[in-house]
Design a protein around this nucleic acid. Structure first.
Length: 756
DNA sequence: TGGCTGTACTG
DNA sequence: CAGTACA
DNA sequence: GCCA
């Protein structure tokens, strides 16, 4: 991604932050100085935001307090160690000013004893003991559910994302009869608004259907004039606010309700408005493809409301219009594994940085990256089959093409980002569902633009189908931009990269106010040894290891081990064995013919490892093993500088080469798997992966009443309630990879074919 | 409504 | 035991 | 969030 575009995104982000400030004083990163410039540039925001006064009006109202309770969390998120605010009705009007948090240090979260379940919890300090939510002095109505199930249970998004926080919407027409409007109302509530189902002085915005004129509005309200401080806008306005995740300037002429001339000085005729709107439809695609976000944020280049509410298909023509591909078909029968794989493929590893997946890499030596997989398996389904039954297996097509040309690439990209987001949110299963949907879309050659089409596909249900339609129409990517650049989310993702840090720890730190690695080093006294290593070598561990280097690293260990005992065998597993051009770490499978694990363990742990440490090859131990059953060793290693030179020379791009020279011999993660010769087959399957194949095969085994693990394939496994394993069962096979595949009824795949 | 792979190490 | 890691 |  170009730095220009990054800069613009940053600008946009700053703008959002400023916007937030209009109704909440939390000011994460500032950049105030350039704000006026940006406003001018973007023509987006009105400095005299009517929302503010409206909000003040609400706040000062004396009405009974009801539902829609919420707590402003921005402060606790953006100020290190800030205690959550205590807001009550009486303090509501002080909201946005310095609240008395500093005087209540006792309400600081008891971090260590608190379990955080999701990022949402971070936005929900209500959970903290002693915390009291404040209530908005207006109880909004709730529209009928979009389906029975959801009635009265609209989930309000995390505080930070509540674009319509503290606003009260009145719709014209104000019924929730039309599904379209019902959806709009639900969306508004979801993003923090309250819905006044009848006129009320608390109303801040009147949201007018796009085909309704001002006269009708007045008739509806039985008024001759709408109160000055109430904003009257077309429905377009609400939806675009959501698209941009910000309160836009309602005075933009495109939001003007026909017949309501006084809202803008330079009022425009309906005709002009129409033109603008239709032009914007065309502009939109170009923009979302090419233009930096800040540019795209110009209201004049945005389009109709209905889009973000998912009902307008007219603007999607231009996205990736590549024709269907020709697939060669394998005759291989649709085996059960295919089904399972489909379901597990799902879990396909997504890069943490969403930017990465937008630049599919084409690997050398036909090694296939994720793509092959993508087109490889037909879905199974009781649902409609994917329209390209031929897309099936072993597509001989080179990987790359399809991903690059996939007609649903845009949607996939966005879903991937959403999956990544939910992942960081600790919402494991939702993440998995998103990934399943992505896997399905990747293998679909037809462009999916409507929810009806989408829902036909396997692993895409009503909710995802709706989102897909919405994305196809609006490219609703921008909403995610904010999370991407949000300091909190950036920090969370950084922390998650640390070896030994998972979601629980990362979210805890975030909640405690830490935002950088330096914060951790200076203010977290009880970092584990592994975490310190993880932090110190974060960059090394996060960088890819060229295949050539993996080869050399493996050779060093092999030589050292065989110097001890020539009968030992070392196999490099992991992505290296699958043929990858680079790897995230080095996986070595160590075995010795006709030898028990005990002996292998002794030699490796007592002789090999110490020796490699002495030579400076091994640099750290992250997880060792002492137990009787121990089979693995995790640590870090370093290629001797002398051997690193040729690798640097071989690096393709100058930039990468320069980077390699700055950091001559980075630490690499290395995993040793100690395997008795009798279990080498199962161990190979395990350590070759990929993880998706492993999960799929294990799931298949389970379905067949068997159990597959790194030690072997077992049958007659007794499982009790909840599939808890009661008995090991009888060994079916463990020595031979192929036989395990056979016993499971899975067609053999070479390691290279396991990149699912 | 519950399941979504199965195991090993850390603290 | 929960959390993290591994494929 | 999907599916059986």
């Amino acid at each position: 991604m170009g730095s220009d575009s990054l800069k613009d995104k940053k600008k946009f982000q700053d703008l959002l932050i400023e916007l937030d400030d209009t109704d909440d004083e939390a000011t994460p990163t500032g950049n105030h100085g350039s704000l006026p410039v940006m406003i001018k540039e973007l023509e987006t925001i009105s400095p005299d935001v009517p929302e503010v006064s409206a909000q003040e009006r609400i706040s000062s109202m004396k009405r009974p307090l009801h539902a829609l309770s919420r707590v402003s969390s921005a402060k606790s998120l953006t100020r290190p160690y800030a205690a959550p605010e205590k807001m009550t009705a009486s303090t509501t009007s002080a909201k946005g000013q310095d609240s008395p948090e500093s005087s209540r240090p006792d309400t600081a979260p008891k971090a260590s004893s608190m379990r955080i379940r999701s990022v949402q919890d971070l936005h929900r300090p209500t959970k903290v003991p002693g915390e009291m939510p404040f209530a908005l002095p207006f109880q909004g109505a709730i529209p009928r559910g979009l389906n029975k199930r959801k009635r009265a249970s609209i989930k309000v998004v995390a505080e930070a994302r509540r674009v319509f926080k503290d606003l009260v919407f009145f719709f014209v027409p104000n019924s929730d009869i039309s599904a379209d409007r019902r959806f709009r109302i639900a969306k508004a509530i979801e993003y923090g608004a309250a819905w006044a189902n009848e006129w009320h002085q608390a109303v801040t915005h009147i949201i007018v259907d796009n085909d309704v004129n001002y006269e009708v509005v007045l008739q509806t309200l039985k008024m001759t004039e709408v109160p000055k401080n109430v904003v009257v806008v077309k429905a377009t306005y609400a939806s675009e606010c959501l698209v941009f995740r910000a309160l836009l300037n309602p005075k933009q002429h495109i939001y003007n309700v026909p017949g309501h001339e006084d809202q803008m000085n330079a009022s425009l005729s309906t005709k002009e408005i129409t033109e603008t709107d239709s032009r914007s439809l065309q502009l939109k695609n170009a923009i979302s493809k090419e233009m930096p976000v800040a540019e795209a944020a110009k209201p004049h280049s945005t389009s109709q409301a209905s889009e973000s509410f998912g009902s307008n298909n007219s603007s999607i023509q231009q996205i990736a219009a590549s024709g269907p591909k020709c697939f060669s078909v394998s005759k291989r029968a649709l085996d059960e594994l295919d089904n399972i794989i489909m379901s597990v493929k799902a879990i396909n590893d997504l890069p943490l940085d969403p930017d990465e997946d937008q630049t599919p890499q084409i690997t050398e030596e036909g090694t296939s990256s994720e793509n092959e997989s993508a087109d490889e398996r037909p879905p199974i389904r009781r649902k409609l089959k994917l329209d390209n039954p031929a897309a099936g297996f072993q597509c001989l097509q080179k990987p790359g093409d399809d991903v690059l040309n996939n007609p649903n690439q845009k949607v996939i990209d966005i879903l991937q980002q959403m999956a990544t987001y939910y992942d960081s949110t600790n919402d494991t299963w939702r993440t998995i569902s998103y990934r399943k949907a992505i896997a399905t879309l990747r293998r679909t050659n037809r462009r999916i633009t409507t929810s009806a089409e989408a829902i036909q596909l396997p692993f895409i249900g009503q909710r995802l189908a709706d989102k897909i339609e919405e994305i196809a129409v609006t490219h609703r990517l921008r909403r995610l931009e904010a999370t991407r650049h949000d300091p909190t989310d950036v920090a969370l993702r950084t922390f998650l990269q640390i070896y030994g840090v998972g979601t629980q720890q990362a979210m805890l730190w975030i909640q405690q106010g830490h935002r950088s690695l330096q914060d951790l080093l200076t203010s977290v006294p009880n970092l584990t040894a592994n975490q310190r290593i993880g932090i110190a070598h974060l960059e090394d561990f996060a960088s890819r290891i060229p295949r050539a280097e993996v080869t050399r690293l493996g050779a060093i260990v092999t030589k050292a081990l065989q110097d001890i005992d020539a009968a030992f065998q070392v196999t490099i597993g992991g992505s290296y064995r699958r043929g990858a051009a680079d790897s995230g770490d080095i996986d070595l499978i160590i075995t010795r013919p006709d030898t028990e694990i005990g002996h292998i363990r002794t030699v490796v742990l007592e002789t090999l490892v110490p020796r490699l440490f002495l030579r400076g090859f091994l640099t750290a131990t992250l997880a060792s093993t002492n137990r009787r059953t121990g089979t693995k060793w995790h640590g870090a290693c370093q290629l001797p500088l002398s051997r690193y030179a040729p690798i640097i020379t071989a690096i393709d791009t100058a930039e990468e080469r320069a980077k390699a020279l700055r950091n001559p011999n980075p630490w690499r993660r290395i995993d040793l798997l100690l395997v008795p010769s009798s279990e080498i087959g199962a161990a190979m399957i395990y350590f070759t992966g990929n993880d998706i194949l492993n999960r799929s095969m294990r799931l298949l085994a389970r379905k067949k009443g068997m159990c597959l693990n790194q030690r072997g394939l077992f049958k007659n496994v007794l499982r009790g309630a909840g599939q808890v394993k009661l008995a090991e069962g009888n060994l079916v096979e463990s020595k031979d990879e192929r036989k395990i595949f056979e016993a499971l009824g899975v067609p053999w795949r070479t390691p290279e074919e396991r990149q699912i």
